[in-house]
Write a protein that binds this DNA or RNA. Structure first.
Length: 430
DNA sequence: GAGAGGTAG
DNA sequence: GATTCTACCTCTC
């Protein structure tokens, strides 16, 4: 086993404990110590559980309709997803972490990899500093895992989370080798980053059950039988870094706007409205990132849980020119409408824009000029929405009252404490 | 290059 | 009766 030399580069994984639930608690102390779940869009199912909710045996992904009847008996509290709040809290956490290392990869809304260096004692100390600072300055609890590779940092983080003795910070190389092997021997491969149900099944078939089994496997054999991805996992478990810290992702490769509806939509006219709204959202997001799309895909789907009346129409529309114009995007999405059968219950629909590219600073050839873009329809819509609220203006009938109700169900939404003046938390001095 | 399969959070 | 959403990668054809 290799040992970290002082000063050699290491990777810290900082991860907020049950992020959405912790974010809700940060501004509502009455939620402290109570079983709490945060629900998915449409108040569908539990996507985050506080430790107390986990202790009740509530599985991840449990539908709310099953939990609701027993909520008061358990003292269980639910909150609708409040992405505006979570996004803002996430940004605060990341900004703070950025002060500890310039080498920061924001991996997801609630976790980040940091390039760090120092002696084991210094790294341990760094971990505790970050943990304390995030808790005090942002108000959410984090755990820190530190190791020589991302995969091991993930593992160390998991260990820190489940073993109170670490007090939330685990430096892999500071743990005696014997203890590490014992941990790996007792952990199924499914706990690893990058290994899920399918791979676990196949690995088990080869007699590889524990993380230790996989760490001792021959990387080349794994590559031949599985993939380069799993080979990297093996090498990383053995201490060889294969997954580098990544530069900040500039553009995305695709953007998807899709929701399940509170009530199914059964008419083409209803879906037309939906696509109008998504086109506006896509336009705004593209503009924000300085991107234009070349291809748009529109789709609708019936319920996955009703296989007899299953229908999943979709169309892929090449756009005449790269664009972020809401009118053009909406028109492209309407190409799905002829495929929509009135009376069929569509519970989900969406648009996806792909083949994204930065907005060129060259003017388009006159033939390809787009009259809407020229007049700035996109930014106008955005400006009005920002000033007068969502739904105040829309393309066609989008956002106008009187259409079918396809809004998202969010019955238990907390205030947007940090991003809206009217919803600021109120502090009372005793 | 598209689509399927797999995975993450 | 009801069961999230977005985004990536690799492999295959």
């Amino acid at each position: 086993m290799s040992r970290a030399l002082p000063g050699r580069g290491s990777i810290a994984l900082v991860d907020v404990n049950c992020f959405y639930a912790s974010a809700e608690r940060a501004f509502d102390p009455s939620l402290e110590d109570r079983p709490l779940v945060v629900l998915s869009n449409n108040d569908g199912c539990a996507v985050t559980r506080s430790p107390e909710a986990k202790a009740l045996g509530i599985p991840l992904g449990e539908p709310w309709f099953k939990l609701a009847p027993r909520a008061s008996e358990w003292g269980l509290v639910a909150r609708s997803s409040n992405y505006e709040l979570y996004g803002d809290i996430s940004a605060r956490v990341m900004e703070l972490l950025g002060r500890y290392s310039a080498w920061l990869e924001v991996y997801s809304i609630d976790e980040a990899f940091l390039g760090v260096s120092g002696t084991p004692a210094e790294l341990q100390q760094l971990g505790y500093s970050m943990k304390t600072a995030v808790r005090r300055n942002v108000g959410v609890p984090v755990c820190v895992g530190i190791a020589e590779t991302k995969t091991l940092a993930k593992l160390a983080n998991k260990w820190a989370k489940h073993n109170p003795a670490f007090d939330g910070v685990c430096h892999w190389d500071a743990v005696p080798a014997g203890q590490r092997e014992k941990l790996m021997a007792g952990l199924s491969v499914i706990e690893l980053w990058g290994v899920a149900a399918r791979l676990t099944k196949r690995l088990n078939g080869l007699g590889i059950h524990s993380v230790l089994d996989l760490a001792r496997a021959d990387p080349v054999r794994i590559r031949d039988r599985f993939s380069v991805v799993l080979m990297r996992t093996v090498l990383e478990l053995q201490g060889t870094p294969c997954i580098p810290l990544e530069e900040e992702r500039i553009g995305r490769d695709q953007l998807i706007f899709s929701r399940s509806f509170a009530a199914p939509i059964t008419t083409g006219a209803g879906l037309r409205q939906v696509f109008g709204v998504y086109a506006q959202q896509a336009s705004a997001r593209l503009a924000k990132h300085g991107l234009q799309a070349k291809v748009l895909t529109a789709f609708a789907a019936t319920s996955f849980y009703n296989p007899q009346a299953s229908s999943h129409p979709s169309v892929c529309v090449p756009l005449p020119m790269p664009t972020a114009d809401p009118v053009l995007l909406a028109r492209a999405a309407y190409a799905l409408l002829p495929r929509i059968v009135d009376g069929v219950k569509y519970v989900r629909a969406g648009i996806m824009v792909t083949d994204l590219r930065p907005t060129g600073n060259q003017a388009p050839l006159p033939v390809f000029e787009n009259p809407h873009e020229e007049r700035g329809i996109g930014s106008l819509l955005e400006e009005v929405s920002r000033r007068y609220g969502r739904g105040s203006i829309g393309l066609g009938q989008a956002g106008i009252r009187g259409g079918p109700d396809w809004s998202m169900k969010r019955d238990m939404l907390s205030p947007r404490y940090t991003t809206h003046w009217a919803e600021l938390p109120i502090v009372k001095a005793a």
